[in-house]
Each structure stands twice: as structure tokens, then as C-alpha cells.
Design a protein around this nucleic acid. Sequence first.
DNA 1: CTCATTTTGTACTGAACGGTAAAAAATGGT
DNA 2: ACCATTTTTTACCGTTCAGTACAAAATGAG
Lengths: 192, 192
Amino acid sequence: MGRPREFDNTAAIEAAMEVFWSKGYEATSTGDLCEGTGLGRGSLYNAFGNKQRLYEEALRRYTEDGFQDQLELLSGSGTAKDRLRRLMTRVIDIDMDDPRRRGCMAINAAVEPAGRDEVVARLADRSFKRLEDAIRDVIVVGQELGEISADRDPRQAARCVLSAYYGLRVLGKVSQDRSALDDIVEGTLSAL
Amino acid sequence: MGRPREFDNTAAIEAAMEVFWSKGYEATSTGDLCEGTGLGRGSLYNAFGNKQRLYEEALRRYTEDGFQDQLELLSGSGTAKDRLRRLMTRVIDIDMDDPRRRGCMAINAAVEPAGRDEVVARLADRSFKRLEDAIRDVIVVGQELGEISADRDPRQAARCVLSAYYGLRVLGKVSQDRSALDDIVEGTLSAL
DNA sequence: CTCATTTTGTACTGAACGGTAAAAAATGGT
DNA sequence: ACCATTTTTTACCGTTCAGTACAAAATGAG
């Protein structure tokens, strides 16, 4: 019972995610969050407790949504290498087209608030590990089909792709040179 | 003429670097910087203008010092692969031994203040490019000596190592699994 | 010694911060 | 209709923020 909520919880978290993603944790004020979500201070604090917990919710949402997108790309058509290539070229497109240069929010989280918030650190870590597993699955299939050389441990190979992927996103934060990023994709794939 | 400075400019920048590196740009207050450098507010603002410009100085110092360390590792003894391996295992050691989990300040800069400060973005970009060139030089030598297969463009190969290197540092921010990071090193090197 | 010049320490500024208090408003149950 | 309960709104905390004003202190030039 009681007065019903006038806002959609999911939509509010998504709006907060956009704000945190664009500005980072520390540079985002609670006023920014009120403006972004359309909620008053009272509602925001009543629903989410404080800025830190709302950030955790926002990051959780980001990693869930992002992982679904990644799975979709990795389970598309084409060879295993084609799918891994699409995973990487997609983020190059996204990173270089985004005028706000938001990059990957999981990386941003690992860099900025993870040192002070163990929940954030574990969320980021789990997100990285899940992508590693998904990449590994693709590599295993590729090896079974003979598309990828089978003389390398698939877990190790997946970790290399994973590392290249996140390196790509770091470099994409400040690089203007798309061909450098494309080199990383092709070089990483030809190593498999 | 005028009253002489009582502090060493270089030492102050270095102290500020430590503070920014540990806490990040936004979370560092001007009070933290006074405490870290030992300077009063007046001296600090008189010498460096404002927080942003001091950060730029600190990052400049970090990238200069860091690049010297990297060059030293890359010009050491052993084969080209040995030297590239040392470059990477060194940062794994550093990242995993550091209780403060500061990571790579250039990455931190690319993630946090680069979006609002073009000077920072260019400093980070330049730092990345310089390491790419240094890695490429080692690969070229390795190819000439037959230690590294010569059928890959050295620039592309260098970019792959570079990307793996920064991926490594991102993962090292939150990972507790050293063997995963070691896999990346060995996988990346065996691809050359 | 005096004066121009620079640095230093301190006190202070208005603004913005994260978070809270409390009352009004809106519901369902009885 | 009334009450317990929850959300919303608004006004308000005390604190901290980045940056400044200004006078005292320390120099070298003349």
C-alpha cells in the first residue's frame, strides 16, 4: 500500500547510467542525477539510498545490457573470426563516432571508483570474466570447425582477445587514428 | 629578483603526481595537493595556476618518467621477445603488488579528465604512440635477428602488443588472477 | 637604506556538494 | 471516512570545494 511511485525504476536507473557514463562518478553531482532522471532529491534518495548505490545499480545495468549486446554479436553469422572481428570493429565504430567519448563504462568504473568501492570492483571484474568466457566459447567452436588453429589453448587465446579488446577501448578514448585500431583487430585475429 | 622560492619545483610536481595518481583528478582536492606537496595554497596557485594545470604538469612528468622506464626495459638484455615479456610482466608485478591499485596514470587520465581537457587527451595519446614506436623498434630488431617471424608488418605487430599491454593494465585494476594476466603475456608473445 | 618584486602564509569567498527533515499528497485496507 | 504507509516536494543542513585577497617576509638592484 502507500502512495505509488510515479516513475519507472528501470528507466530511472537507465537515465542515471547515462549521466554517470558521460561524466564519470566523481564529476556527477546529485543535482545532475535529479536532472537526468527527472526525480526530486527525496525520491532519488528514498529509492536508491545514496549516490554510490545508484552508481552500482547503473553499472550493473550497463554490464548486463552490454553483455547481451556482446553475446548477440558473438552469436551472429559467419565464421568464428568474423564474429570476433565484429565484436571489435563495433566498439571502434562506437568509440570513434561518439562525440562525448564516453568509452566503456566498465573500464571507467574499474579506473575511477573501483579503488574506493569493492562492489564496483567486483562488478567490473565479473563483467570482464563473462566476456572472456563468451570469447572462449566462440574460439572453441572455431577450433572444432577448423576455422581457428587448434594448437593454442582456447582459454589463453580468449584472454588475448579480451586484452586486445580492452586495450582497443583505452586507445580509442584518445586516438584519432582509426587505422591503428583496425591494425589491432586484424593483428589479433591473424594470431589465432 | 624578488623573494626566492623555498621549494623545489620538480619535487612539488612529483608529489602532486603521486596524489593525483592515487586518488584521481576529481577526487583530489586542492587541500590534498597542499598536504602532499607541503606547499601553502598561495604558493601552489602562484606556481601552477590552478588544479587543472598542475594535473597536466603531473601527467607530463608521469609519462616522461614512465617512458624512460619502458625504454630501459626494452633495451635490456636477452632476445626481443624476452624484452617485450619483461615490459609486460613488470607491470603485472607492479599492478598486483600495489595495495592502492593505482594502475597506469596515463590510462586513468585518458578515462577521467581527458574528456574535459584536450591537453590531457593529447598527452595520453602521445604517450601511447611513443610506446608503440618503442615496441616497434624492438620488433624490427627481433625480425632482423630472426627471433621474431618477419612475415608480419612490425607496426601492426607493435600495435597488437601495445593493445595487449593496456588491456593488461585495465584487467589488472580489478583482477586477482595473475595466471590470467600471464596468459595474455605468453599468448601475445607467441603470436609474434 | 630604500624600493620594486616575488613568494609565503592566512583568512576568506561564494558556490556547490551530498545528504536529511518534515510536511503534504496519494494510495489501499478496514 | 479514517488511518497506516509510502512517495513526493521543498526547504534546509553542515561541509567542502576551488580559487582569491592581502599583508608579511624575503630577496637583489640602485
